[in-house]
Design a protein around this nucleic acid. Structure first.
Lengths: 231, 231
DNA sequence: TGACATTGTCACAACTTTGCCACATAACCT
DNA sequence: AGGTTATGTGGCAAAGTTGTGACAATGTCA
């Protein structure tokens, strides 16, 4: 396995240094961005596997950056850990709401940092490189975030896209509605299970009748993506 | 699947009642403990699948109980949801730090409760990894939840699938109808024994005449799955 | 702001599965 | 053989699951 890249966005050089040492010892690759304005570009350029953002940043807040990252579909899946000072405890909630995956309260030990980081990475989808996935002429390209059949581009909403992507990356496997909600919507959303059906329907519609056999119903359970026709 | 047991620890009987109704409707089993002092013992005794704890408890805090539960290795994995009043928002953080898995702010709707509860349970229950079972060209794959002979996928209902799965994982062994009802239907359903025969028949039909010798009748007893043809 | 797209829910329609019955067949026994 | 019991079969009504269109709420974008 290649070393995971961790991007640090923090203005305090002493903290950056401490983190750098901790990461190196734990076998991670280290990227840094001093200035939050550069944050977004650096993320897009280097595609880190995880980002550490300091909450307290002069001239702009880490929370703003996090929000921006989580909104952008190309960076949304990169996990973010926020660093907050003890006195800013209340902000944790705000941080989590904006989409941060975890937070660490300063001061923290290098060991704690690495432990949290491991946990978050473990939870994060172990997706490989962003290779396009092609099955039976249906192509999903994660870079351009586009789905095509032959030359025809398909029109679908972000949720349908994520759902399809998940199913395609895990083809030949049956998932319950609950599991799909977990994986596609995210663990702690409050959404009816039947909503999954509706999105499946929209997906099938978008894909069209020539290929809708790819998305199969597993009665009593949920759904499955499979190139093998079921009947 | 057996009903999940949910333990409620709260002093307000009106809330307990509301929760009880919501749980019942959603198909959960309901346990209650009025007094926090009893909390720990009840947990150890009944091993609930999830615990709801009110933050506000006279004479002792729910947080204390939660901490105790999460410290004890035998109860640590049981998920805990805390109930907090709006004004106690700041306590959420403390709750999460103590190890609570989620929190709900009062007032909350029954639906919200059930949804959160589902989400937490979903996260807490991991899936085992099952290997496909292959016998005489008949393959049952628990991952895709599909049964195939060669390349042909078989069409059967969920009950037939479970029945077949059970028989295949216990091949060469005869089971009575009662045992099958127990294992495949679940312990406490009331179903006629002859119903098993009907499902066996459907199974044989689904498998087709080329392979129906695999499911054998054991006269006076029940049925058996065996790759070895009996006379 | 207003048009437009997306999302989650619902109510109802369409379809499957299930359990049971009644009767047909088969196996077993004396 | 004839009687007796056990199992196979087709069909059916009820229950359960999934498909579908419409709607309101919300978010997005120029």
């Amino acid at each position: 396995m290649t070393a995971k890249k961790v991007l640090i966005i923090d203005d305090e050089s002493s903290i950056r240094e401490m983190i750098a040492i901790a990461l190196e010892m734990a076998g991670y690759e280290y990227l840094e961005a001093e200035n939050i304005q550069q944050g977004h570009e650096i993320v897009v350029d280097h595609r880190p596997d995880l980002i550490l953002v300091d909450w307290m940043m002069p001239g702009g807040s880490g929370i703003e950056l996090t929000r921006r990252l989580k909104k952008d579909a190309t960076t949304a899946e990169i996990p973010v850990i926020m660093l907050t000072a003890k006195s800013e405890e209340d902000n944790k909630i705000q941080g989590l709401e904006v989409g941060a995956d975890d937070y660490i309260t300063k001061p923290f030990s290098p060991r704690e940092l690495v432990a949290r980081l491991k946990a978050v990475l473990r939870r994060a989808t172990p997706q490989g490189v962003d290779e396009p996935i092609e099955i039976d002429n249906l192509v999903l390209d994660p870079i351009s975030q586009r789905v095509t059949i032959g030359t025809r581009p398909l029109d679908m909403g972000p949720t349908e896209y994520r759902l399809l992507k998940f199913l395609m990356t895990h083809q030949e496997r049956a998932y319950s509605r609950a599991q799909l909600l977990d994986q596609v919507w995210g663990g702690n959303v409050y959404v009816e299970e039947r909503t999954v059906d509706v999105h499946i329907r929209r997906l099938r519609k978008a894909i069209g009748s020539t290929h809708d056999y790819l998305i199969q119903t597993v009665r009593g359970t949920g759904y499955r993506f499979s190139a093998q026709r079921s009947l």
